[in-house]
Design a protein around this nucleic acid. Structure first.
Lengths: 347, 347
DNA sequence: CTGAAAGCGCTTACAG
DNA sequence: CTGAAAGCGCTTACAG
């Protein structure tokens, strides 16, 4: 046997199919007597509306396509979680398309343009499934261009920006979060603050650098050229660049690493030289990855609003689906400095 | 305008709708001439088959429902990734339902039975969406009972077991992975090996304990009662229990922590006492979380086959969907010991 | 308030 | 090899 259909419910309740539909959708008034009989029949047979048939009739699937560069990318699960939470009350479901780019891109996130056809195929797949809207989740904050704009399906970028004026985007504030965490060190009275940056061509690197410089300028603090070190987002570059910094004639008293992983590298370098954090050296990171709470001493870092990015992206998409007029095209969410135990005044 | 329909393609190509369908599905021979005309019309109009209409007709959606206890749970994204990879060639898409239990369960994974109605609602939602099959992804390896068995929809448990004989499950080998990593320490010539366990009532704890004991017994090594410490999977319990162990009259030369997070706690305790890892103390963890590569020295640990669990779960589901007869009901995948720098022979 | 009926866009016996 | 037609299970003007 298959599942019960609306026709069977109608027969059981002695009403028309239309009436059953009206009772279930609540779109038209139905007399209490018939309503009751329909509801009883539904209960009796454990009837479930066939959403496929409904979708075919209404041209709406009530499904949101979520296209992710890689589900294993660091911020991605939290962003998906935010989307799920915002969508859970609305009746929308999530169709997940995972492009699995992590091992292809490594941390060369700016190379994405090579995979634009993969992305467009993913969008096409979601279009073919007739999703009502699409959220694109990047693995790294940056501008995304050249994406095929789906016809009649709103698209929201999460953790990224787009030049496409038809799309919305939700990201976070790289410049000011970097400014804030640098301020934290300045307020502790550090004067010699060094920076370990990510890839040169990364937009996150550029913005975090500008935030760092802004805070230092504002405090009238000089940043010697050799205090700006270029890493590659990985542990070893954090270790090596910290070694360079600590070998300088005038070493810094504090280091801003542009992510927690490189900050973990700072710890290793300090540990090797028997320097204590934060007594001999203050270290801060970026991202508030789990590792930040597992390093000893716990790492002061910047928490990114990942879940909120997901919530906001889904909210804006829902607004667009509802036909709301005024939706901010590009949203930039603030970050939070999490002060833990890796920072203290210089000796 | 809406998208082109099959009827329009038929008119454009001067054939019947049936012929268009046969060309597209390849289910029947069509003369080369008509075939060509159909394909041209498809190209010209950029026609896409309406999968909703197809689903209504065939009662198959070619969608797999993936029900996750929490997308942010540690092994979950990798398992989903494995599922995506296995499914990507098969034409199936993934409908993701995220129960968001992480903050409710904390690390009390055994309390799941309180949320069984939430789980059943999730399954119901997937059934209502007419998915062809369901994969349930747990956050912690254990037995799951009392789940509503969906009618006519195969269900596979990933990272968990079930008593339900109608279901399949794919998990990993807790006992032998624990045996293996203990062996690693024994081979380094450690005699005094302590254990920091997870929650007492966790089945992962029990199996990892039995594996530890098996290896120790086999080597004829005695395990003093006070060498078995009970933690709660968290950093602080690792730190505290290591403090206890290092305060013993005869302290261990090596510690097996039942996860990497507690192992990070061991590092902190050792660091405070100015003990060097691995020279003064060998430490091993479990899970191969990212933190394992960011601790200094890098942590020797057990890698769980998360992605493979996803791949296998999807493969077995596909087999069931194809009607294959012999599918292993319960699969237990082996783990891998990852030797890094936190283990060495005792002094 | 209620029901008969059209139609969403496909697939698939069936007849030729 | 090909096409006319039924039908999947709904929703929604429309007429009453």
């Amino acid at each position: 046997m298959g599942l019960a259909t609306m026709k069977e419910i109608a027969e059981l309740a002695g009403v028309s199919v239309a009436t059953v539909s009206y009772v279930l959708s609540g779109k038209k008034k139905v007399s209490p007597a018939k309503r009751e009989r329909v509801l009883n029949a539904v209960e009796l047979t454990n009837y479930k509306l066939n959403t496929i048939a409904k979708s075919l009739r209404t041209s709406k699937t009530e499904i949101i396509g979520v296209l992710v560069e890689d589900i294993c990318g660091l911020p991605v699960p939290e962003i998906v979680d935010g989307i799920n939470q915002m969508l859970s009350d609305s009746g929308y479901q999530v169709l997940l398309n995972n492009l699995q780019l992590l091992n292809k891109l490594y941390n060369q996130y700016e190379q994405l343009s090579q995979y634009i056809s993969t992305i467009n195929r993913g969008i096409q797949l979601l279009e073919d499934a007739r999703v009502d809207g699409i959220i694109y989740i990047a693995m790294h904050d940056r501008r995304i261009d050249g994406i095929h704009q789906p016809v009649n399906i709103p698209l929201v970028f999460a953790y990224a920006n787009s030049d496409d004026p038809a799309s919305l985007s939700v990201s976070y504030d790289n410049h000011f979060s970097s400014y804030d965490i640098t301020q934290h060190l300045i307020q502790l009275n550090h004067k010699r603050i060094a920076l370990i940056a990510g890839h040169t061509n990364s937009s996150a690197t550029k913005l975090r650098l500008s935030g760092f410089r802004a805070a230092m300028n504002e405090a009238g603090l000089h940043v010697p050229q050799e205090y700006i070190r270029w890493g590659d987002w990985e542990f070893h570059s954090g270790l090596e660049q910290t070694n360079m910094l600590l070998s300088l004639k005038i070493p810094p008293t504090a280091i801003v690493a542009m992510n927690d992983v490189m900050a973990a590298g700072c710890y290793a370098a300090a540990y090797k030289r028997k320097l204590s954090i934060p007594e001999d050296l203050s270290v801060v990171g970026f991202d508030n990855q789990p590792v930040a709470s597992f390093l000893y001493p716990n790492l002061t870092t910047v928490a990114l609003p990942n879940k909120k990015i997901g919530l906001t992206a889904a909210k804006h998409l829902l607004w667009r689906l509802e036909g709301r007029e005024k939706i901010p095209a590009n949203t930039t969410l603030p970050c939070t400095v999490i002060v833990r135990d890796s920072t203290a005044p210089p000796k």
